[in-house]
Computed example of a mutant assay.
Amino acid sequence: MDERAVKAAVLVIGDEVLSGRTQDVNIRQIAEFLSPLGITLGEARVVSDLEADIVEALNALRARWDYVFTTGGIGPTHDDITADAVAAAFGRHIDVREDALAILHEWYAKSGTQLTSARLRMARIPDGASLIANPVTGAPGFQVENVFVLAGVPKIARGMLEDIAHRLEGGAVTQSLSIRLEGVREGDIAEILGQAAKDFPAISIGSYPWFQEREGGELSRGVAVVLRSADGETLARAEQTLKSQLPAQS
């Protein structure tokens, strides 16, 4: 592990997410998985099930970030076109691959399920890609260079991540500290936080309003100030400085 900032992107693929029928949770769980490895998310996008859109987004993301994780579109149906789009983005041939096919044969044989032509689509892998194990349903994901292609179902995507950690080179792990303020609005502390951001440029400073209902229906409010950085020493100094300036800490 080195001390440089290592960042990744998530490309969520699927009309069902854009339409609101499905709520994405993969961005959060990928971010949570990567954080202890010293990798943070720098960008997340959601695109439709159109090959041109996937290719355009993927090429932009893989050029900008250290790693890219795609979720969705690698199942057996006609709109599962992620594998083809990834192959197109890298200019690689794609077809059913024997190692992926062997995995499907084994999984479906265990359950006595027929391996139909539709399910064979899940064995189509771009040339030169490395398979990503799927401990939940068998059908593998794959890696091409810095791009990792995962299933869209959160439980399956999370299982696939276990076969990815050892392939990643992380950076300095980001630490976070929180200062909880009560009876304060964001506008009350905006100038203090703005100056702190200038004084500590290596620190990410965010403010997040909170509300809490007390007994009798009374509503209390405040702001949580969150500091994040890979530089623990500077993080501690920033926290000490802000605590000396901010009011109503709880």
Score class of each variant (00 low, 15 high):
R92A: 11
E218I: 13
L104G: 06
F200M: 03
W107A: 10
W107K: 14
M160F: 03
L168P: 04
L104H: 05
R119D: 00
R4A: 08
V12Q: 04
P76K: 09
G138W: 10
A196Q: 05
S204R: 13
R121L: 12
L41Q: 08
A248F: 08
D188F: 12
R185H: 11
W210S: 07
A109R: 15
V25Y: 13
T113M: 12
L246P: 07
E191N: 12
R221E: 14
A123V: 06
E98D: 15
S35Q: 14
L181K: 00
G20D: 02
G159C: 03
A230H: 12
L235D: 01
Q240I: 02
A236H: 01
H166C: 04
G222K: 05
I132P: 09
G152Q: 02
R221H: 15
P154V: 00
A197S: 15
P126I: 02
V136C: 07
K155P: 03
R64G: 00
F142L: 12
T70D: 10
P154F: 02
S220W: 14
R237E: 14
A151L: 00
G206R: 06
Y108A: 01
V153H: 05
F211N: 12
A102T: 07
E98A: 15
G194V: 05
E3I: 12
R97L: 06
S178W: 05
M1F: 09
L227R: 02
R21G: 03
L120H: 06
R62M: 12
E186A: 01
V17Y: 07
G217E: 00
L168F: 03
H78I: 10
F200N: 00
E145H: 10
A63T: 13
P36S: 11
D127R: 02
G38A: 12
S229M: 01
D163M: 08
L58S: 11
R221S: 14
G222E: 09
K198R: 15
A224M: 14
A172C: 08
A118R: 13
T234F: 02
L18M: 07
Q114P: 08
G42S: 00
V25W: 11
G152D: 03
K7T: 15
A202Y: 05
L227F: 05
A83F: 04
A63Y: 09
E218G: 06
L11N: 04
F90P: 02
L61Q: 10
E145A: 13
F200S: 00
D15P: 03
Q23L: 14
S111G: 04
A85D: 07
I39F: 13
A190S: 15
A230D: 08
I189P: 06
T234G: 13
K155N: 04
N146I: 07
E106D: 15
L227N: 04
P140E: 03
E16A: 10
I94P: 07
R62H: 08
A83P: 05
D163S: 15
G217I: 04
I39R: 13
G141S: 12
Q212G: 02
A85T: 06
M160G: 04
A31V: 07
G20I: 08
I164S: 11
S207T: 07
A102S: 15
Q29M: 04
V136K: 12
R124M: 09
E56G: 10
S48R: 15
H78T: 07
A248P: 01
T40Q: 14
A44W: 13
V86H: 11
G159I: 00
R167W: 09
L246G: 09
G183Q: 02
